[in-house]
Design a protein around this nucleic acid. Structure first.
Length: 261
DNA sequence: GCCTTATGTTCAC
DNA sequence: TGAACCTAAGGCT
């Protein structure tokens, strides 16, 4: 479930369970064998997330960079680690815990210089206290691209994925096709604040919860989102069918009536 | 079992 | 714009 909240949640868990060391780092599947050799036996100084990237500082100018992509999955558990089943790209073990990574898009060791270059490409992350939303506003307010595309562009804002994109636009009644430069600063500030709240809730709960209480936030059954993955179903607010369209290779969901310009 | 889909990114054309 | 990457889950048969 990799949007930004997943990675921040993971960073916290890794920091709590694996700080210190030494760490036994291996690649049972073999695809990360060379990288694992570089960092096996290292000590974890710090684990942090930037957008959807997880970075582990292992000292001696070695930074383990993970990106889950669409398929990446992680498992954290108590030692002893079970016999690896299937494609475990990387395993980190201590005497008390283990961490398994499968299916990730990226698993590599970077120098501090390359790490800095990577981070410089990312827009502000609503989950980070050092983020500057005005940097995103500069991009948004000058762009003719649809706001729905800009929110998914990690160099504009980092950490927002398809689910949060659809939901936050619905919560603010915004037409996804509206060009970025047509947004007001007030609207952007509200979007940013809402993204910060929604993502932070995701870090706490491990889920994407976007419904307001009056629309079933605490209900156990029924829809969990306003529009995301609800194509053709009734909008929770106006009962019109939810729309879906392909935008830049991803499915975009919205309510034509609640999100009219 | 097989087929589809998926909360993502990069690269080739 | 489309394919490739790569794994798991859910719906279907």
């Amino acid at each position: 479930m990799p949007e930004g909240h997943t990675l921040h949640r993971l960073a916290r868990a890794v920091q709590r369970r694996f700080r210190g060391g030494p760490l036994r780092i291996t690649s049972p599947q073999g695809r990360f064998a060379a990288g694992a050799e570089l960092v096996d036996g290292a000590t974890l100084r710090r684990a942090e997330a930037n957008g959807k990237h997880l970075l582990l500082d292992l000292g001696e100018d070695r930074h383990l960079h993970l990106h889950l992509g669409l398929f990446g999955r992680t498992t954290i558990g108590e030692a002893p680690a079970p016999q690896p089943v299937g494609a475990v790209r990387m395993r980190i073990e201590t005497d008390t815990a283990y961490f398994d990574l499968r299916g990730a898009t990226v698993c590599e060791v970077l120098t501090g210089t390359v790490r800095a270059r990577l981070l410089s490409r990312l827009g502000p992350d609503p989950l980070r206290s050092d983020a500057d939303p005005d940097r995103a506003w500069v991009r948004l307010s000058r762009s003719t691209r649809p706001v729905a595309a800009l929110l998914m562009d990690q160099s504009v804002v980092s950490g927002v994925g398809n689910a949060f994109r659809a939901e936050v636009l619905f919560r603010h009644g915004l037409d996804p096709a509206q060009p970025g430069r047509d947004l007001t600063k007030v609207t952007w500030d509200a979007l940013w604040a809402d993204l910060s709240l929604l993502l932070a809730d995701g870090v706490r709960t491990g889920r994407i919860r976007t419904l307001r209480p009056e629309h079933g936030r605490n209900r156990r059954t029924g829809p969990r989102h306003y529009v995301y993955r609800r194509a053709g179903e009734r909008c929770l607010v106006c009962a019109q069918p939810v729309s879906v369209a392909e935008l830049a290779g991803r499915r975009l969901y919205w309510c034509d009536s609640c999100q009219a310009r």
